[in-house]
Computed example of a mutant assay.
Amino acid sequence: MNLSTEKKIHIDSILDDRSLGWLFPVLETGQATCKEFMKLNNEFFNCSDYLNTVPGHLLSYSINRQLSSQCSLPACPFTIHKEKINVRNQYCIPILRKDDITISIMRSVNRRRIDKNDKAYLKEKCRKNNELDGQFSLFEPEISGENNYHGVLLYGAEKDWNGIGFADVVFFDSQLKQIHYSINLMDKLHIYISSMSNGEKEKSILNAQNIIKDVKQQLEG
């Protein structure tokens, strides 16, 4: 077994199906809440001249809010903290952690593609990922500070906003030019659901419905 294979098996053992399957319903609930918010306030969002970037930013906020809420519950397999990635505009994103793996949560226009504004922040974060290609020990100096494998959860909504269109945890190389490893969360969802009891499924659906209902009531009130 070579180094890269060993490291990828290590990642799979930590980011198991149940941990990754937990993430996708959280994304879907955040997306559904955002869609409901815009629907209830459609008169406010009727100025098409300045609307093009607003839904995306609202989606990011809604999903980040949902992650913060769900990560405080005992069933969450991750810990969470926020991290500032742009000093100029004070932009922060959630970072999930499980053992020696951290995951940045980022919205993207295109699947498995990092937006240009996020690249400077991620290059340093992804340096250790070069081990996944067996190159780190030969070509990279030793890392100081954090020593984690770093994935980027890149997600985007469907064009009609009927759900999440894609969601992948991607482990890029330190130059963000190659993908050393990628995990499709939408593939993990059916594994997660199939492992749940009927009671757990009903509770999960009810929780999502209650969250959307509460937000709707707050907006209407």
Rank of each mutant, 00 (worst) to 15 (best):
I80Q: 12
N147A: 01
E131I: 11
F37R: 05
A208W: 02
I193K: 01
A167D: 12
L58Y: 07
T79P: 10
D187Q: 15
Y121T: 09
Q90E: 04
L51F: 14
E28I: 09
I11P: 00
F44K: 11
T53V: 02
F166S: 08
T79S: 06
L58Q: 14
K216V: 02
L59N: 15
E202K: 09
T5R: 03
Q66L: 03
P74T: 12
Y149H: 09
S68D: 04
T79M: 04
M196T: 14
A208T: 03
D133T: 05
L176N: 06
K39I: 12
L206F: 06
D49E: 15
N207H: 13
K203C: 07
I11F: 14
G134H: 04
I101L: 07
E36H: 04
G30H: 03
Q217L: 15
S4R: 09
S194V: 01
R88F: 01
R18A: 07
R97K: 04
I85C: 10
A32N: 13
Y192E: 06
P25D: 09
G221A: 12
I143L: 12
G163P: 01
D100C: 04
I14K: 09
Y121K: 05
G221M: 14
I179G: 09
D12K: 06
D160S: 10
L189I: 13
L51W: 05
L27M: 12
F171D: 02
R113P: 09
N64M: 04
I95P: 06
L185I: 05
D214I: 00
E220P: 00
K116T: 13
L3G: 03
L122S: 11
S197T: 15
L40H: 11
Q31A: 14
Y121E: 05
R65V: 00
I212R: 11
F37L: 03
I114G: 06
D173A: 04
